[in-house]
């Protein structure tokens, strides 16, 4: 009668280990298919330059003394923002003594920006 030879059990154990490893890798790879919008796209969507441009123009406009002239500029800014950058912008200027308080509101449906700026 042949004696039981079990000195090669490790081969079978290794086989189990390798197959479990492959199974887990398959699960991980399967997860990768369910990614739609990436972080990079979200970063690209952030309207940094739009907000900067509008802010710069708004601060520049606060130097215009005549209220009628200011309104013309504000109308232009809001109109351009709506048509070109697809954002709702509202600007208001409240003079107080020698200073000017500028309220900026920007909203493009994804990002909202609000600022109150007082001229020095």
């Amino acid at each position: 009668m042949a004696r039981l030879n079990d000195s090669a059990q490790w081969i079978i154990l290794m086989g189990f280990l390798v197959s479990f490893a492959i199974f887990f890798l398959a699960v991980v790879i399967n997860q990768s298919t369910v990614v739609g919008q990436t972080t990079a796209e979200s970063v690209l969507e952030f309207p940094k330059n739009d907000i900067r441009n509008i802010r710069a123009v708004a601060l520049e406009t606060s130097g215009i003394a005549d209220e009628g002239d200011r309104l013309i500029v504000v109308e232009d800014i809001t109109s351009i923002a709506q048509r070109r950058t697809h954002a709702i912008v509202s600007l208001s200027f409240v003079p107080a003594d020698t200073r000017m308080q500028v309220t900026i509101h920007y909203n493009n449906g994804v990002t909202e920006f609000d600022e109150v700026w007082i001229s020095p």
Binding site: H86, I88, S90, H105, N107, N108, G109, D114
Partner: peptide, 11 residues
């Protein structure tokens, strides 16, 4: 589609 409640604008 969005609604801006400051200017009460619906886009």
């Amino acid at each position: 589609w969005f609604y801006d409640d400051v200017t009460k604008t619906l886009v």
